[in-house]
Amino acid sequence: MKRFTLLILLFTAFSILAQDKFRTSTAIVNFEASVPLFEEIKAVNKLGTIVIETKTSEFVCVLFIKDFTFKLDLMKQHFNENYLESDRYPKAVFKGRITKFDVNEITDLEKEYQIKGKLYLHGKSKNIEVKAFMKKVSEGIQITSDFPIIISDFDIEVPYTIAGKIAKTVNTELTAVVECDGCDTKQIVVVDTN
């Protein structure tokens, strides 16, 4: 019986340590660049990829610019062709580290973390720090974050004639549930040593 219990404990310890990557390819990123009294400028991308390496606290988020959807096709066209030039710069990438992150401390109570890293957008990069809230949910770890993006930091040019209709700072919201990569494939193997 002692050997059986020891085997179960060893497996449990191994499975916790083996959970070194959490990921999703369905992160949702909303942005809004609306200005009062003018047409609403909003878009959503539901195909964001996030990877969290628990051993290093590394956080990576990748979005393809063309995956943003708008309520008007003409807005999407202008966004891709004139502002973000998505044929030339197809992705937005954020790479950073989660400060004081320990996957074993994540509970069903939301906890605030800081993520420091570099945002690559429109051929430019900028060091940024964002707040992220994380908690355990049945599917994995839920992450939410709100952060501003100043368009001039990334050399996104807005024609003078419409500059007053677009916010200089874009409000961005991220929501995702990252799942343990490979956790479902692990199986308990019980070996009777008697």
Rank of each mutant, 00 (worst) to 15 (best):
residue 68 F to V: 03
residue 148 P to S: 12
residue 60 V to W: 00
residue 81 E to I: 08
residue 81 E to K: 14
residue 156 I to F: 13
residue 45 N to L: 08
residue 19 Q to E: 14
residue 127 N to C: 10
residue 132 A to P: 02
residue 184 D to N: 15
residue 42 K to T: 12
residue 134 M to Y: 01
residue 111 K to Q: 08
residue 54 T to G: 03
residue 60 V to I: 12
residue 134 M to Q: 00
residue 114 Q to V: 04
residue 122 H to M: 09
residue 18 A to Y: 08
residue 77 Q to R: 12
residue 50 I to C: 08
residue 24 T to I: 07
residue 169 T to V: 14
residue 106 I to T: 00
residue 11 F to C: 03
residue 8 I to P: 11
residue 76 K to P: 05
residue 136 K to G: 02
residue 186 K to I: 14
residue 68 F to C: 06
residue 81 E to Q: 14
residue 192 D to Y: 12
residue 156 I to W: 06
residue 96 G to A: 01
residue 169 T to K: 13
residue 64 F to P: 04
residue 135 K to I: 01
residue 188 I to Y: 15
residue 149 I to G: 01
residue 87 D to A: 11
residue 22 F to I: 03
residue 123 G to E: 10
residue 184 D to V: 00
residue 151 I to P: 05
residue 51 V to P: 00
residue 94 F to V: 03
residue 34 S to V: 07
residue 108 D to K: 04
residue 187 Q to C: 10
residue 191 V to Q: 15
residue 21 K to H: 13
residue 66 K to C: 06
residue 43 A to R: 07
residue 112 E to G: 11
residue 175 T to M: 10
residue 85 E to D: 13
residue 88 R to Y: 01
residue 24 T to F: 02
residue 91 K to C: 06
residue 157 E to T: 13
residue 39 E to A: 10
residue 159 P to D: 08
residue 161 T to D: 12
residue 92 A to M: 04
residue 104 N to H: 06
residue 119 L to H: 05
residue 157 E to Y: 10
residue 42 K to H: 13
residue 16 I to A: 08
residue 131 K to G: 00
residue 184 D to I: 02
residue 35 V to A: 05
residue 182 G to D: 09
residue 178 V to A: 05
residue 38 F to S: 12
residue 23 R to A: 13
residue 115 I to M: 09
residue 189 V to L: 15
residue 84 L to T: 10
